[in-house]
Design a protein around this nucleic acid. Structure first.
Lengths: 178, 178
DNA sequence: TCCTAACATGAGTGAGCACTCGACTTAGCC
DNA sequence: GGCTAAGTCGAGTGCTCACTCATGTTAGGA
C-alpha cells in the first residue's frame, strides 16, 4: 500500500504509535497531547510527527482503523446486534463516537465513511426484506440514530442495563408496527 | 439572589457577557476563547473574569440559564413536542448538547439537572397515563434518548426533514405497541 | 459636591501544546 | 565490513489561551 515500503523499524514504530494513540485517545479523549502518545509508544515526539505530520492525520489514521474494524464486524451481525456492538464499543472507546460524528468524518475520511454507510445499508435492506425492520425507514435516519446513540453512550456513562433498554426503544421504533 | 446587590453598571455588564458568551459558544463551541467573548460583549477581558472567575464558571452560568429556559418551556409541551423543541435547540446552539451531557451536568449543576429531570418526568407520566407512551419505558432511558438525540443533532448537521424522521422512529419506539 | 468602595481596564504572565530541525543512529544493500 | 539513505531523537520555537494585577474610572450615598 505505501508508495515506498517502510524500513522494518519504521513499520514497527508506526503500529506502536497507532496502538498507543488509540489507547491514549480512548482514555483521555482527542484533546490528549501528542507527547503523551509518544511517551506511551516509547518513541520520541519527532518520530510521531514523522509518521503523522499533523495531529489530525494521527486521529484520522486511528479512525480509519476503527472504521475498517467496524465494517469488518458488520459481516457477523444483523442490524440490531450491530447496533448493540457499535454502541458498546463507543462506550468503551472515546474515539469511536467522535469518529462517527458525521460532519468531520464525511469531510476528512469520505471513503471510509462510505464503506460504513454501505455496510449499514446492506444490514438495513436485509433486515427490511426479512421483515425485521419497517420499509418506512431509510438509511439516513438509521445512520443518524447510530451516531446519536454512540455520542450518548460516550458522554452518558450508561451501564449495561440502561444501554439495553435504550436500544430496545429504538429497535421497537424500527420494527414494523401493525 | 446575590448576597450583595450589584452596582448598576456591573449588572448590565454581567448580562451583556452572558448574552455574548451564549452567542459565541453557540457558534464556535466551548473551545472559543474568553477574549472573543469579551470582545463581543464590548468589555475588557478582566471584566469577564471579575464576574466569572473561571471559564468553567462562565459555561456553567450559561448552562444554568439555558436549562432554566428549557424547564420553563416544558410547561407548554407534551413529551413528544418537547423532544422536538429540545432537539431543534440543540441543532442551533452548540452549548445545549454539551450542557446536556449528563456526566458533566450532574456533577457541575446538580440542582439544575434535577429540575430538568423532574420536568421530563412530569411529561413522561402524563404521556403514559394518557396512553401516548408505553408504561414499559422509564425515565432514565427517556433522558438518555433525549441527550443522545441532542448530541447527534449537534454534530450531525441534520436538516429539518431528517430530524423529523429520526424523531418519528424514536416516538414509535415510545408508543404502546400491540 | 465630594468621597470611596466597587468596578473596569488591558498589558502582562505562565503554562501547555503542536510542530520543527540539526545532530545522531541504524537498517539494509553491495 | 562499509556506506548511505532512511529513520530517530529531543531540546527548542512560536503561538494560543486562561488568568492576574496595578492603575484608572465611576456609581451612588452622605
Amino acid at each position: 500500500m505505501p508508495e515506498v515500503p517502510l524500513r522494518a523499524d519504521a513499520a514497527r514504530n508506526r503500529t506502536r504509535i497507532l496502538d498507543a494513540a488509540e489507547a491514549v485517545f480512548a482514555e483521555l479523549g482527542p484533546t490528549a497531547s501528542t507527547e503523551e502518545v509518544a511517551r506511551r509508544a516509547g518513541v520520541a515526539i519527532g518520530t510521531v510527527f514523522r509518521h503523522f505530520p499533523t495531529k489530525k492525520d494521527l486521529l484520522a489514521a486511528i479512525m480509519k482503523r476503527l472504521l475498517a474494524q467496524l465494517v469488518a464486524d458488520a459481516g457477523e451481525h444483523d442490524l440490531f446486534s450491530f447496533f448493540r456492538h457499535v454502541v458498546a464499543e463507543a462506550a468503551a472507546k472515546k474515539t469511536v463516537a467522535d469518529l462517527l460524528a458525521a460532519a468531520d468524518l464525511d469531510i476528512r475520511l469520505p471513503e471510509a465513511a462510505a464503506h460504513l454507510r454501505d455496510a449499514v445499508e446492506t444490514l438495513l435492506t436485509t433486515a427490511q426484506s426479512s421483515g425485521a425492520v419497517t420499509s418506512d425507514v431509510r438509511l439516513p435516519e438509521v445512520m443518524a440514530l447510530l451516531v446519536s446513540l454512540c455520542q450518548g453512550a460516550l458522554h452518558g456513562g450508561w451501564d449495561q442495563a440502561l444501554q439495553s433498554r435504550i436500544l430496545d426503544v429504538v429497535f421497537t421504533g424500527l420494527r414494523p408496527h401493525s
